[in-house]
Design a binder for these strands. Structure first.
Lengths: 332, 332
DNA sequence: TGACGTCATTGAAACGATTCAATGAGTAAG
DNA sequence: CTTACTCATTGAATCGTTTCAATGACGTCA
C-alpha cells in the first residue's frame, strides 16, 4: 500500500538506516544524500508509519482527551485550551466523548491503552481512579480535569467548586435576596454536590436566608426549562427570589421559562446566577451573571502537567486548584 | 513497562504463539491452556499492544473524525451518530477539531495517516480533496460529511442545501412576507453559498419579493447578534419583514438582538427561520422555525459507507444526499 | 608509506504482536 | 504393531521503523 522506508531506500539507492537518519538525524548524513533521500520521499509520497515508529521508539505524540459531554461549551473550551498548548509542544489531541457512560469511558480507556498514547486528560464520568493508576504504572500518565483526585495519587486541575457555590450565594444574599433556590443535578455528580455544599456554607453566616433544592436529572437546557416551568407555577409566597443554577445551561433553561411568563421578570422578581461563564452567557436574552472558571487556562495547565509526567514518570502528582470568579451581569 | 505477550507466555509456561492464539483464535487452543493463559493475563494486567498488533495485522479499528467547529451542536450531533454506529461495529471514533484552520486540518490528516487509522470522516475546512484521494490510494478511505465531493471521486454524505434554501424562503413567502433578508457568511463557505443560491431560486417564481444579503464573518451567535443590532437600527421602511439565517446559531443571535428591542416582535414584525434544527432551537426564547438536517442519521450513514470502503478498497464512491425538512415553530 | 581519526553509510537486532509451516503427542484404523 | 490422522503447541518469519556497532572511504600527519 503506502510506500515504506524500504521503498524509499531502494529508490534513492541507499540503506534503510540512512533513510531513517535523514528523517530523524539529518546532521549525521551528508547534504547530497539528504537531498537524494528527500527527493525519493517526495516522488513516492512516503509518510512515516507512526505505528512502527512508536513500536520501536516507544514514545507517542498523541494525547487523548475524554470528556463527559462534548456538547457542553465548557468542555469544548477546555479542549481548546489543551489543543492550543499541545500545538505549541508539537503534540496532537484526539477527543473521545463518553456521554456520561461508564461503559464508553472504559472502552475509550482500553483503546487509548492499546494505542499507547502519551497520556490521558479526563473529566471522569464513572469511578476510574483505580484504572488510571494502573495505566500510570504501565507508563501512561493521566490528569483529571474539573475534578480532584480522591486518592490524591493522580494529578488534577480543578476549580474550587465549594468556593464557587459560596461566592454565588453570597452575591445573591448581598444583593438583598433571602429565599434562594438551587437548581441542578444529579446531586451525586461531584461538581454539583460541591457547588451545593458551598451554597449551604454561605447560608451559615446569614440566618434568615433559606435554601430550596430543585434537583434535575442532568445539567442541560431542557432540564433547566422543565424546572423553571415548575417554579413559574409556584405560588408567589413559595417562590424563591433568587436562583443559583448548577451551570449556565440550566440557567439558560430557567431563563427561557421565566421569559415566557409575564409575571416573572429577571432580575426584578427572581435573580439568576449560573456557573461556567460560557460564551453564551453574556449574550443570553438577559445577560447572565455567572461564576467563571478559567476553562482555557485549565486545559492548558492540564496538558502541561500531563506532558511533564510523560517525560518524567516519577514526578509527584500535582493538584492545581483554580479559584472561581464572580462575573456580574444584568441577571442579578 | 507494560507486560508483553512474552511475559504472559513465560508466566503461563507456554509459547508466545499460543498466547496469541488464545487472544485471537481461542478455538485452536485446548481449554485448560486457555484458562492458564487467561489467568496469566489477569495476574500481569496484560493489555494487547495495539501498535504492534496493527503493524503486523495491518488493520486498525479506529475511525478519525475531523470537524470544523466542535462547538457547533450540529457537528456534535453528527459525531454522536457516527459514534453510535461505530460502537455497534466495534470501532472507536476519535475526534479532531480543525477550528476552520487549514493548517490544523493538515496536521490532523498527517497524524491520522501516520497512525494508519481505518478511515477518516471529515467536514472539510480547506481544500483537501487532493490529499484525501492520495490517502485513499494508500489504503485510508474517507467520507466527506456535510459537503459533496467536487471531484466526484470521494464518497460524501450531505444535504441538499439549495433545496433547504428554497424551502426556507418559500415558507417565508407563503406566510405573506415579501422583503426577505439573508444573514450568514462567509459567503464562500459552500454550505452558506448553496443555501443562499437556493433562496434566490425561490425568488424567481415570486416576482415582487426582494432579498437583501447581510454577510457575517462566521456563523456564530455573536455574529448573528451583531447583524441583528444593525437591522434593529434600520429605518422601518428599509427593514426586512422576514429573515433566513444561515444556521440556528446566527438565528439565535438575531433573536437576542430583536428581543432586546421593544419595537421588533418575532414573528409579528420580523419572521425568522434558521437552519440545522439544533436541540436548542425548540427551546429558544421564541421557538425557532428551522430547516432540519438529519444530523444523527448523516453521521451513521457516513460511518457505514466509510466502513464499507475500508473493507473493500475498490468500492465505488457513493454520494448520499439527504433532503432537508421544514420544521415550523412560533418564529414564523 | 603507514597509522590514525573523521565522517558517512551500512546491516542487523530490536520493538510486540500475528501467522504459518513444522513438530510432537495422542488416537483410531488396518 | 505400524500407519495415518487429528489436534495442540511451538518457533521462526514478518510487519516498518529506530538504533547502534561495524565497515569503509578519505584525508592528515609523522
Amino acid at each position: 500500500m503506502s510506500p515504506s522506508i524500504k521503498d524509499v531506500a531502494a529508490f534513492a539507492g541507499v540503506s534503510v538506516g540512512t533513510v531513517s537518519n535523514v528523517l530523524n538525524h539529518p546532521d549525521r548524513v551528508s547534504p547530497d544524500t539528504v537531498d537524494k533521500v528527500r527527493g525519493a520521499i517526495k516522488s513516492l509520497g512516503f509518510v512515516r508509519n507512526d505505528v512502527a515508529r512508536h513500536l520501536r521508539a516507544g514514545d507517542s505524540r498523541t494525547i487523548a482527551m475524554l470528556v463527559m459531554d462534548a456538547a457542553n461549551p465548557f468542555f469544548t473550551d477546555l479542549a481548546k485550551g489543551a489543543e492550543d498548548q499541545a500545538a505549541t509542544l508539537g503534540l496532537s489531541v484526539v477527543m473521545g466523548n463518553t456521554a456520561e457512560s461508564s461503559e464508553r469511558e472504559n472502552n475509550y480507556l482500553d483503546l487509548f491503552e492499546e494505542q499507547r498514547v502519551r497520556g490521558v486528560l479526563i473529566s471522569p464520568s464513572g469511578d476510574v481512579e483505580e484504572r488510571l493508576l494502573q495505566l500510570k504504572k504501565f507508563g501512561i500518565p493521566s490528569v483529571l480535569v474539573d475534578r480532584a483526585s480522591t486518592s490524591g495519587k493522580l494529578s488534577s486541575v480543578s476549580v474550587d467548586d465549594e468556593a464557587g457555590g459560596r461566592i454565588a450565594v453570597n452575591h445573591l444574599i448581598e444583593s438583598g435576596r433571602s429565599r434562594i433556590g438551587f437548581v441542578g443535578g444529579a446531586l451525586d455528580v461531584p461538581q454539583v454536590r460541591d457547588r451545593l455544599s458551598g451554597a449551604r456554607e454561605a447560608l451559615d453566616s446569614h440566618p434568615g436566608v433559606s435554601l430550596d433544592v430543585y434537583e434535575t436529572s442532568a445539567t442541560t437546557v431542557l432540564e433547566g426549562r422543565r424546572v423553571g416551568e415548575q417554579i413559574v407555577a409556584l405560588d408567589t409566597s413559595a417562590r424563591p427570589d433568587a436562583i443559583f443554577a448548577a451551570n449556565d445551561l440550566v440557567a439558560i433553561g430557567l431563563l427561557q421559562a421565566f421569559m415566557a411568563s409575564p409575571q416573572i421578570r429577571v432580575p426584578d422578581d427572581i435573580a439568576l446566577i449560573g456557573y461556567d461563564d460560557i460564551d453564551f452567557a453574556p449574550s443570553a436574552i438577559v445577560p447572565l451573571t455567572s461564576i467563571r472558571q478559567p476553562s482555557r487556562l485549565m486545559g492548558q495547565t492540564a496538558l502541561d502537567i500531563l506532558n511533564a509526567e510523560a517525560l518524567d514518570g516519577s514526578a509527584q502528582p500535582q493538584e492545581v486548584v483554580f479559584q472561581p470568579e464572580l462575573i456580574v451581569r444584568s441577571s442579578t
